[in-house]
Simulated scan of single mutants.
Amino acid sequence: MKTKRIHFILGISMLVLTCNPITLNAQGCVAIRHFSSCVGNSLENNLLGKGDLQVGMNYRYFKSFRHFRGTEEEPDRVANNSEVINHSHAWDFFLTYGISDRFYTSITIPTVINARSSLYEHGREERNSSFSRGLADIRAGIGYWLLDPIDNPEGNIAVGLGIKLPTGNYNATDIFYNVGPEGSPEVRPVDQSIQPGDGGFGLTLDFQFYQKVATGLFAYGGGFYLLNPRETNGIRTFRETLSPILENEAIMAVPDQYSVRTGLSYSLSNVISASLGARFDAVPVKDLIGGNEGFRRPGNVLSLEPGIAYMHQNFTLNLNVPLALRRDRPQSVTDRQTEISTGTPRNGDAAFADYLINFGISYRFPKNKAMDIDPSLRDTFN
């Protein structure tokens, strides 16, 4: 029976390994930072037998530079060289352990390197850059498959609960030029979009599912919501120095984030799978719990997400490249308050990327060493 379970897990993994991390980046300076679900990095990583251990790393990169107000792009920002450019790199190192065939637990240790180039943060006189790097917010959690995976090989759903710890620096600083007395340089906190952490304890709720559609073809999906009860983290933004109407944005907020995705995964061979899906990533205007004061850039991105993966024995590689289809920077709380008080329409802007590169590598250490796929399962799962 134990061998059969291991065979099942390997078989179903071939079809869902292209379901790469449910990751929120919002592809630009909308998102506070790179973030993914607390409970495991993918369906494949969470389909574990009792005692199995999965370790791996996921790398993500994007360059944001296209400015939007609402869903309307402002192409003149690029044309006149006034756009804000973010280069964001993140490495998530994760470990997932099978408590049983249905229960699993995971921990993710993220690290980041970010660079931000702008004019407006440096006195609007010359373009300069600010940087941040280091440990981000560690996540940990537990998940549970609602149906026994062995008895329900054609479809299942898992639910998870996790926590986000404020381990990342949320007061990273750098030198800003032409902003001090008589235009001198001054050390200030870097922009919210490249801070490694947000300064708050968070709670995540997530789900994942897969369902067989035809031989070799599965539907997949999942999502998470990050609850950040803390309203602000006390770090000054200096935005109030840009305009009196930005007084409400003088302190950084600690906003919620969420992501959902769905698509189809097809097994091209015994070692290669491909997927195509859609994803929606967002920072909401208002949090579900807690207040909404402080500075945040609400926004959302709808993306087309192609992916490909390779799996041989216990080794897995996967690549997903979400392509932005629709980008939206809605009115923030401050935008709405200003519009009501002045009678003048107002909608802040945000920079977004065209695409995101998401590459993962993992290795499984099975408790049971009998890893050949049972021939009776090949037609079912490949």
Results as ranks from 00 to 15, higher is better:
L356N: 08
N45Q: 10
A309S: 15
Q54W: 01
V78I: 15
V254R: 07
L48T: 00
G299S: 04
T18G: 11
S129L: 00
D354G: 15
R279Q: 15
I357N: 09
V187E: 15
E44I: 08
N152Y: 14
S273W: 03
D206F: 08
Q54N: 15
L325M: 15
G290P: 14
W91T: 12
F201C: 06
R336G: 07
V254W: 11
G299K: 05
E249W: 06
V179R: 11
S362P: 05
G123K: 00
L53I: 09
N358E: 15
C38D: 14
L205S: 01
L24K: 07
A250T: 04
R336L: 12
N320D: 08
D281V: 09
V301R: 02
T316L: 12
G28A: 09
I113E: 14
D379T: 06
P255T: 02
T232P: 08
S100L: 06
L227K: 02
P75I: 00
K367Q: 11
N20Y: 02
Q313T: 05
I99Q: 00
F315C: 03
P189Q: 05
G141A: 02
A79Y: 09
R346D: 09
S129V: 02
N152T: 05
P306Q: 02
N347E: 11
L17M: 12
G56H: 02
E186I: 08
